[in-house]
């Protein structure tokens, strides 16, 4: 299954053959360069390392510059590895383009979700909060009780109790998204549905790993 790095451009609408409006995400996918091919013999596992989005040599650290140079590639901002058994078809320095996704029906898109900061329990865990009235004071968005006193578990609050805290900015995979269009000329990939992260965020696209019907 092919893999490529890219950037989420944003969402828009498309219309299917029955005239229905379909939500789509446009991804600028590639071109990437192969930075390194990892083999079980040399590295203990098989993978390809891809790089996407140019970055100026002046902001590249010396150690990284050396790494890029080894494969004959230019410095890249976004570098990710893709584990694959058939790494043999990749050569260091080789270009990877969306054209490789021709004929791939479903893809997984991996990205980093938008950061929500320190989020309360209603937003973070979809709690119901407290009543708006009937004597509720200053606790409309709080959780309820978080425990019953130190008894059997020997602790007042059980482990894993869902509370307020940091939300978002995590790696997430949108699985089995239908590929609607590949524009090899402009390096664009159009996928049905949404994709993690903000517009302009870096994503990795790979052929769907799990079998099954497309999501939505």
């Amino acid at each position: 299954m092919p893999a490529i790095l890219g950037r989420k451009l944003g969402m828009t609408s498309a219309f299917d053959d029955k005239g229905r409006q379909v939500p789509v995400t446009v991804i600028e996918a590639g071109p990437c360069q192969v930075l390194q091919v990892k083999t079980p013999a040399a590295d203990g596992y098989a993978a390809v390392q891809l790089g996407f989005a140019e970055k100026p040599a002046r902001v590249t650290t010396r150690p990284l510059a050396g790494h890029f140079k080894k494969s004959g590639a230019t410095p890249k901002r976004f570098v990710r590895e893709y584990r694959t058994g058939d790494a043999s078809r990749y050569q260091p320095g080789q270009a990877v383009t969306v054209a490789e996704f021709e004929g791939v029906p479903l893809v997984d898109v991996i990205g980093v979700t938008k950061g929500r900061g320190f989020a309360g329990v209603m937003k973070r865990h979809r709690f119901g909060g407290q009543p708006a009235s009937h004597g509720t004071e200053r606790k409309h968005r709080s959780s309820g009780s978080i425990g019953e006193g130190a008894g059997i578990p020997g602790r007042a609050v059980r482990r894993g109790k869902r509370m307020a805290g940091h939300m978002g900015r995590e790696r997430r995979t949108a699985e089995r998204l239908k590929v609607l269009k590949i524009d090899a000329e402009a390096n664009l990939l159009v996928v049905r549905g949404s994709v993690p992260g903000p517009n302009g965020g870096y994503v990795m696209v790979r052929g769907a790993r799990k079998a099954g019907p497309p999501k939505a």
């Binding site: 451009l9 944003g10 828009t12 609408s13 498309a14 219309f15 789509v24 446009v26 600028e28 269009k181 524009d183 402009a186 664009l188 159009v190 517009n199 302009g200």
Partner: peptide
């Protein structure tokens, strides 16, 4: 300011790639 998405006349300019895809519809 991101030159590609800078506000123009009160509207966010869609990135060229999106416009290219939309053109078909």
């Amino acid at each position: 300011p991101n030159q590609e998405t800078r506000l123009r006349k009160g509207r966010t300019m869609k990135r060229a790639g999106i416009q290219r895809i939309e053109a078909a519809y």
